[in-house]
Design a protein around this nucleic acid. Sequence first.
DNA 1: GTGAAAATTAATGTCAGACAATTGAGAGCC
DNA 2: GGCTCTCAATTGTCTGACATTAATTTTCAC
Lengths: 244, 244
Amino acid sequence: MKIDPTSKSDLSAQIAKSIRDAIISGDMIVDERLPSESELADQFDVSRPTVREALKRLAAQNLIRTQRGATGGAFVRRLSYDEARAQHVTTSTLLLSMNAVDFQTACEARYALERACAPLSAQRRTPDHLATMRAEIHRQSQPGLSDEGFCDSDVAFHRALVDGAGNPVLSYQLGGAVEAMQPLMNMITFTQRNRDRIVELHTAIANAIEANRPHDADAALSELTAYTLTLGEQVMAARVARKG
Amino acid sequence: MKIDPTSKSDLSAQIAKSIRDAIISGDMIVDERLPSESELADQFDVSRPTVREALKRLAAQNLIRTQRGATGGAFVRRLSYDEARAQHVTTSTLLLSMNAVDFQTACEARYALERACAPLSAQRRTPDHLATMRAEIHRQSQPGLSDEGFCDSDVAFHRALVDGAGNPVLSYQLGGAVEAMQPLMNMITFTQRNRDRIVELHTAIANAIEANRPHDADAALSELTAYTLTLGEQVMAARVARKG
DNA sequence: GTGAAAATTAATGTCAGACAATTGAGAGCC
DNA sequence: GGCTCTCAATTGTCTGACATTAATTTTCAC
């Protein structure tokens, strides 16, 4: 294996790319062991620290895991749904916080995605999913619940709704999106929101899911969208009023 | 700043986490310069190579960029939509290829997501989006087009549909999903598919988007979903037949 | 005085070699 | 056979050095 010395990018970036390509293309399979750091250093004709930097890049993307000891080394790692979702949440959170996304855009995206899986959830949710939704609704109606607790419960409720569709790929995609956006939306709206109203809408959603009435679920989600948007506008108006 | 020496994880992982938290929490803002590697080494009481491994981890997640030279260093990087989507595509591709996702599940997730934004696209698409869709349809109907070219065009068509919703957050979420799944689906189905049929369905979608008829767009996408699922079943049947 | 060339400097990028820590495997003993 | 002990392989970390890059400052010819 060779590395292009005329390339502008770092050696460690090139080596990481080379190995990443091998993994993505299927040349290396899950749990396969990579050559040791010394061997890689020889193969790529670089020093061991450079190889290590490359391996750390891959580790940061959950592509490999490393083990110390005699039979240790770096191994191709199976990316689990949970890890993938965690990565998705991190990326989405950063994207939103760094790009001044306006509230309406985030809100629209979040509910558009969620409504995509509500019909499937109505059709296939297990009693477990439904029980989780009911439990979270109950938690949300406790007066002593903190704002953080309410937000967590909100995320858990919507996650149960998404998981109810019984499609892990969908759960990964939407779960990541909802988990990233819900806290941001709660941070904006918690000053203005009426918990009773949200509990009411959540109950409507749960009822529709329980009765396998996709259309009702969609309608309830529409109302929740509209209510959230209204909250956003109220917060904006309050901010303008304070400044003026 | 200090690092817990009793923790099981690597020093470089701990340092990376510490800096990452500072960025996510907003303690460090975009384009802010991190201390130099030597300074970080002093602050965390580790050697420079260890700091460098930590920085490479962050670079792999597009959280920082580095610059050489006198005024160089590591800077907090603004995560762009394109980079975020690229990361999302990479993660999704890996997840799908490593977890033996069955065709039906992937197909269902992909079209559920796409149908979520079709109504918005019908309402808001610009002439540009429509022109892109028409151009890709035309390209797909050229007899000389290679399988790879057809797949690329397919992705471009669906991406235009998603972008037509005019919501960058939605484009990031769905674009990533579609771009990751479409090639996999094409890889499976290209032996069986009928290009004319796909062009026909794409045209129906474009017509519905042009006429702002969300319901028609949804129906056409449903048909495309059903057709794709049929293809998947045919491929499976063919495989069984070969083996038996 | 001014402008271009050269030295300075501060930072990342890379290398070589060493030692520490961990862990599985096999030898040796009972 | 089962237990312990040593050993060897591998990753984790450190030290110190040099190379490379690029902005800044200085020098010096004009």
